[in-house]
Design a protein around this nucleic acid. Structure first.
Lengths: 217, 217, 217, 217
DNA sequence: AATGAATGAGGGTTCATTCAT
DNA sequence: CATGAATGAACCCTCATTCAT
């Protein structure tokens, strides 16, 4: 009860994919976005040229500009869509779940599942966090903050529920670190799938965080 | 007592900095390396131009090439020096310490201390891991592997000592994630110093990992 | 009569120039090629900068690269076109001519006529023979070899016809030397036109070569 | 007798090499000149960098400038020395020879012998004729003119002696073409030595030129 | 809806040369 | 006598972007 239950399962139910965009324009745009994501993932935002994107998407250089007004906006759209989606899914999954530990586990699973299912996009999101400037940067920062706040509140719930005392900020950021670092090492031929990883990272993180209430200080 | 002792202290003794390089050439080189590190940190490797480095180091563009044969080699030297130093210091600190938990805590402290004391260099090391190619990449990969192996062996010692069962690979990589992610959030005006961070991350990680032997599966 | 007839005439009929290339792109490309030829002629391949070519052709530096992927390929195209054309014309002129001496005279006239009508291109062809590397070099070498072989076979025909004994290789290469050296001295205000030159060089070369069967050794 | 005697022999007597330069400076300079000649031969004047010369001669970049005030002067010295030497040797060999045909054959032999014995230098002389500017160019042009005039006068003697009528200018320049072109094709493993080549080119050229008096026009 | 053609700015790198030592 | 250190100018080439069509 008071003790962590690291093996608590969170089912990795498949969410239905977002419906295909309505207009021809949006469909074509999404297509290009996908190719661009791969290129940014492979070469980095600065390292990728519009010519690379043109080649990858099979569209002329000038044609790209019909869909995106700039390379920076292209990155922005990728990051925004990725982030928005992950937040959106998280909210849906959290609905109706009351147990604080379970809720944190859902957070972790949601993150890792999306991460592994959309590795390129998530790497671009994680790795190119600083590439955007001014307006783009701040709009994205807002989403990021929301996501961060959700995690904070989940941990605060947990703390309240179990009378724990760990430092929330560091815990949250450590958790993000554990999870986001994945893009540097995950090898789908060697490493476990999202569900396993989520359980294992969840175990480490939750046990770590929850033992704090008892033995520390 | 078998139970983790998260508050175990590891003194953060200052190591004397490496002696200044002997030759004038090496000294000038190191100077440029320092400026370049800052620029790479701020703009990224791809985003930084040799002209930026020239400006930052107060040396003519052509002058830089007297010291470095290419931009890539410049990055290589930065990363190699940083990595070599951190490994070197770690080995010195581990010497004579027998307790497995203590040894892991030393690893964490050493990493974070160096990270915060050399934020730019460590960000360049972490963030630009993929920028190097071929020969440069493989030479650096060798050092990286050594560092990784040390961490693995520390955790294996801990596992053996306490009869634990957590998955080492994921534990190690989670730990690296927690620590390396710092560069994305650490704010010296807000966040604690290396010693505190090391204790807190150590607590989370060690408790997480060490509770595994008892309650899981 | 067995004796050389040095004054044998070869009419220098004008061939209609190749029709202008079909596409806008090709026309623009040819235009640039012409300017580049002049610049390479004046400054040499190494000595000419892309900026020089840009200036000469009235197109921006970057614009040039829309037509040519590299300076080397630019030179290649010039040389290939020049060589291909000269070979092509030669074959057309040789058709239907049976007399061996006449055929050699046609070879010389064809070479000199094209040389003087396209001095820049021919100088670039002669003088920058070593500037191309690898793939470019070998493709051009193939054309060169074909041209060389044609000349060899013409001289061999002559030898067979007149029972001569001169060393073909040296004769051919001497002839090429005589002709190609023109770019170092020909001054259109002082020197004769192609037809005269061809007759005179033809006289020297053919008499030299044909007297061999009788008086030597 | 009135007929050409193409096989007339010209002994290829070895001239003693010029005495070693007196001063240490001059000796070192000559050494560097030799290395530079090879580099210019291999890469061309424009294509060769001072760094290439430095590497080839084993002397520091700055050190070279103690001996030569500029790259251009370096080329000048090479060309001047080469040309001066060949003219000097020619004059010595012509001394005391009266027969016009023999004198022309000496000219050819002298040129080819020096050419093959000093291929690099002669290629640099032939190929980089236009690289020099202004003062350097004109000083070299003077030597060149002298050499050219000698050849003209030799042919005029021959014409007078045998009542020939060929056009001297074209004959001379054709002869130079035949000889100088050698650098583009001579392969010491395949092609004959200077004496043979001189006889064969002499045969072609002299027969060609001498038959002119009888059958032409 | 999409492209071919074009560009100014800037990329990394090398150049011939200098000068204090 | 010779060099290490340094530089401004220039190198070839690619960049993100535009615009008439």
């Amino acid at each position: 009860m008071g003790s962590p239950s690291p093996s608590a399962r969170v089912s990795a139910q498949r969410h239905r994919a977002a419906p295909p965009p309505a207009t021809r324009f949006d469909r074509r745009l999404a297509e290009i976005l996908t190719h661009a994501t791969d290129v940014f993932c492979k070469k980095g935002y600065e390292g990728a040229s519009m010519r690379d994107l043109s080649r990858a998407s099979g569209m002329s250089l000038a044609g790209l500009y019909y869909y995106f007004e700039s390379k920076e906006r292209l990155l922005f759209l990728i990051q925004k869509h990725t982030f928005t989606t992950i937040v959106h899914r998280l909210k849906a999954r959290l609905e109706g779940v009351g147990d604080p530990e379970q809720r944190v586990r859902i957070f972790i699973l949601n993150h890792l599942e999306y991460f592994l299912a959309n590795q390129s996009a998530m790497k671009v999101l994680s790795h190119e966090a600083e590439a955007l400037k001014n307006g783009f940067a701040s709009e994205l920062a807002a989403i990021k903050r929301e996501y961060y706040r959700i995690c904070v509140s989940l941990l605060d719930e947990l703390k309240g529920d179990r009378k724990l005392e760990f430092p929330t900020r560091i815990a949250v950021l450590s958790l993000f670190g554990m999870m986001n670092w994945i893009y540097t090492w995950h090898n789908s031929r060697v490493d476990a799938d999202a569900e396993h990883l989520a359980r294992e990272m969840g175990d480490i993180f939750l046990c770590g965080v929850m033992s704090g209430g008892k033995s520390r200080r």
